[in-house]
């Protein structure tokens, strides 16, 4: 408490021993759920900087999310979808995919768990039931390619896959996608996140670009979409372009943070097409980002993401930083003085 907080934020104790795949803040508290390549999922109290729980898996854990403050879900490279009960430190398997499961989201609107896998399928689960594949699996939906990223807002689900495919579903009618799209970026999709206001989604690629898209297919709405470059640097006459690994939207202001393999975190105002802030450089690639429920904290996973193959890695770390309003609040527009 008394010690000065470094520019990168306060570092959490007991970080994972290998790369971090994702981290998420709870919707009800300052708890943080972290999944890692060291086959563990860890629960932290971000405010108190205390490790509250640890769940070991048979393979690297590729994603995790909260159900409520007492339980969460994780998906791993052993093809399993697990439920984690924090209070008793127990876990049970909801079901399996045929290949490593890449991402997981829990829909509060539909009361269902959605998982995406490299077996080119999307599955929905009802977590209220007892263990057993037959009783909890709600449906399996084939995808054109391996699933790389998922995002939910309201009843809308956006699925980004390999081959730059983007499918948009309505959770109330999963029999076929509401829209089938292709990414407007020319390189591999890295992350997709929906706008908090439910009007569209942001999609990032390995080529240091983020595309801002809208669900409404009318000409007026589509005219608003655009893309911008980020996470690049010039060095010795070369433009080095880094993948944009993470996008996190601020829950109140609708601005968003991006993190890339260049180790930087930028905050953007999507409406006014402005960059609001750039945090100081983190020790290595920024693998994941998450805002707390009230937007006062931002969790940053500084963890090598293998973009340059295997190499002797630096220490993986989780930083939790306080967010100043000036960093994330959109600046008011300045209108020119009307002619006399």
């Amino acid at each position: 408490m008394a010690s000065a907080v470094p520019a990168t934020g306060r570092e959490l104790s007991n970080p994972p021993s290998d790369g971090i795949t994702n981290l998420r803040f709870s919707n009800h508290s300052d708890h943080l759920l972290v999944s890692s390549w060291d086959k563990s999922v860890r629960l932290y109290d971000a405010s108190a900087n205390v490790l509250r729980g640890e769940f070991m898996h048979a393979g690297p854990v590729l994603d995790c999310c909260f159900h409520d403050d007492s339980s969460g879900f994780s998906v791993a490279a052993d093809n399993t979808v697990r439920r984690l009960v924090f209070s008793s430190n127990k876990e049970d398997i909801l079901g399996r995919h045929d290949a490593p499961v890449r991402c997981v989201e829990y829909s509060y609107a539909a009361g269902q768990l959605i998982t995406g896998s490299w077996d080119k399928t999307l599955k929905c689960w009802d977590p209220r039931g007892a263990s057993g594949q037959e009783r909890t699996l709600v449906g399996t939906y084939p995808q054109p390619e391996r699933v790389y990223s998922l995002s939910l807002v309201g009843h809308r689900l956006v699925v980004a896959t390999a081959g730059r495919h983007v499918n948009i579903y309505d959770l109330r009618n999963m029999s076929q996608p509401e829209q089938r799209r292709e990414s407007s970026l020319k390189y591999q999709t890295r992350c997709v996140r929906c706008y908090p206001n439910g009007t569209g989604y942001a999609l990032s690629s390995v080529e240091g670009r983020v595309a801002m898209e809208f669900f409404d297919l009318s000409e007026a709405s589509q005219a608003k979409k655009y893309a911008f470059k980020c996470h690049r640097k010039s060095e010795a006459g070369r433009d080095i372009v880094y993948p944009v690994n993470a996008i996190a939207f601020h829950p109140i202001y609708g601005t968003f943070a991006t993190g890339g393999c260049d180790g930087y975190v930028n905050v953007w105002d999507g409406n006014n097409k402005k960059r609001l802030y750039q945090y100081s450089k983190y020790p290595t690639s920024v693998a994941a980002l998450s805002f707390s429920r009230d937007g006062r904290l931002l969790a940053v996973a500084s963890s090598y993401t293998f973009e340059e193959g295997p190499k002797s890695q630096e220490q993986d770390a989780i930083f939790v930083r306080s967010v100043n309003e000036i960093e994330v609040k959109p600046k008011p527009k300045v209108y020119p003085n009307p002619p006399a």
């Binding site: 048979a58 690297p60 490279a77 093809n79 490299w118 391996r146 390189y187 080095i240 372009v241």
Partner: peptide, 30 residues
């Protein structure tokens, strides 16, 4: 720009996680 753009990750067929998963270290032995 054409001559000097360098993509840190230029493998379109595989994601970084898929590449990493292929290492023996991360293979699942259940």
């Amino acid at each position: 720009a054409t001559n000097e753009v360098y993509l840190v990750w230029d493998d379109e067929a595989m994601s970084m996680e898929e590449r990493r998963m292929s290492l023996p270290k991360y293979q699942v032995h259940d």
